[in-house]
Design a protein around this nucleic acid. Structure first.
Lengths: 211, 211
DNA sequence: ATTATGATAAATTTGTCAACTTATCACTTG
DNA sequence: CAAGTGATAAGTTGACAAATTTATCATAAT
């Protein structure tokens, strides 16, 4: 069946796991949690709710996850994974790196706003994840950094971008400039001109990358 | 005596005011509020606390301010005004615009961290102001934008910076890149490598501004 | 007129305690 | 032994009355 939605994801093994790593139940739990979190929000769904919806006792959930938060992280990972996937597709395109940078910013902003408006409850979980320093977030940033590096590397190879600045510094700085479109709190505040802002920042970054 | 601390500030008249604009009592109220907010935080100090500390009834406070929030905005304005002052000094320096940009970022980050660690209660008020969309914040951003424009204009005149990109776009984009060092929530999350980050972003922006 | 207040309605916060939730563990079932 | 649960301690939340706080107004003093 269609399992591994978490492939674009970060590091080796997700935190908060417990028990058999590859297990049908684990998948079911995450799916049920995702559904409940989406509908009622993280706070309002109890572990018992999740367990009940797949006909289990809540105790059994803890055979697979350390805590409710760990389930939250798993759902969050999937959510961020979807965002990463679209961005990864852009990064991997066979188009000028300049275009990819621009589209990267646009997609980031658009997906952020989409989450904010159409999947508010998930947006809230991501916000909670950042606030609570859930480490799924570190993974997300690492993933973005890798995608940025991919584009910059290509751009340097093709002669579109300058080659003097240390790759690391360039990528770190670019990631910083994405914070306004990445961070839920910022999105909530600036959603009204995200489109314009992604545009002008992408332009600034591109001027900066020019050879 | 030493009154007008709010000179570097934003627009014409601060919101939430009421009654005589230039009045000794107003100054006293703000001073008392500043002291209480600093020590006990915005939430924990009551209008009565402020009034009592200058020997007035709380009703009289409302002759000068629309609401407790309006008093909060006034205090917030002074706090942000101090930050603006330091930044204005940098913007006005007679040094290469390149240096000023770099120092602008550094100062922004340093002052943000300083507020976070040494004046936590004021930091919290600024956070509340942003969250509640108090309009003192819009004023702050406007002021920053003006300072950025000042530096960029100088840099263009001196030949340090390129002249093609519309001034407006450039400044807006630069302000966006400052969000990670400007926004209290971001500062709380990234304080540990603010110094490095202001550095790399300033560098990125300077490469972008290069002619 | 300007400076100032007490009384007061409406909104918000605080404190309390019962109900609920999280997480563990010893235990059962197939 | 892998799959699964009931009982339960510790921690958290919800409901709701009491207390406090915000904000206004009519009125007094200078």
């Amino acid at each position: 069946m269609e399992d591994n939605e978490n492939k674009t994801q970060d590091g080796p093994e997700p935190a908060g796991r417990r028990g058999p790593p590859e297990h049908e139940r684990r998948v079911q739990i995450i799916a049920a949690a995702d559904e409940h979190f989406r509908r009622y929000g993280y706070d309002k769904t109890t572990v018992a709710d999740i367990a009940r919806s797949i006909g289990l006792s809540s105790a059994y959930i803890y055979k697979f996850f350390d805590s409710k938060q760990a389930v939250g992280e798993a759902v969050c990972r999937i959510c961020l994974g979807r965002i990463q996937q679209e961005l990864a597709a852009i990064a991997a395109e066979d188009t000028p790196a300049i275009d990819r940078i621009r589209r990267f910013y646009k997609s980031l902003g658009a997906q952020g706003v989409q989450l904010l408006f159409n999947e508010r409850k998930l947006h809230d979980i991501v916000a909670a994840a950042i606030d609570g320093r859930w480490l799924v977030i570190k993974g997300h940033e690492k993933a973005l950094l890798a995608l940025i590096q991919q584009i910059v590397t290509d751009g340097r190879a093709s002669g579109e971008f300058e080659r003097k600045t240390p790759m690391d510094e360039t990528c770190k700085a670019i990631l910083q400039t994405m914070q306004p479109f990445l961070h839920p709190v910022m999105l909530e505040q600036n959603f009204d001109d995200i489109e314009e802002n992604t545009g002008v920042v992408a332009n600034l970054v591109l001027r900066s990358l020019a050879p």
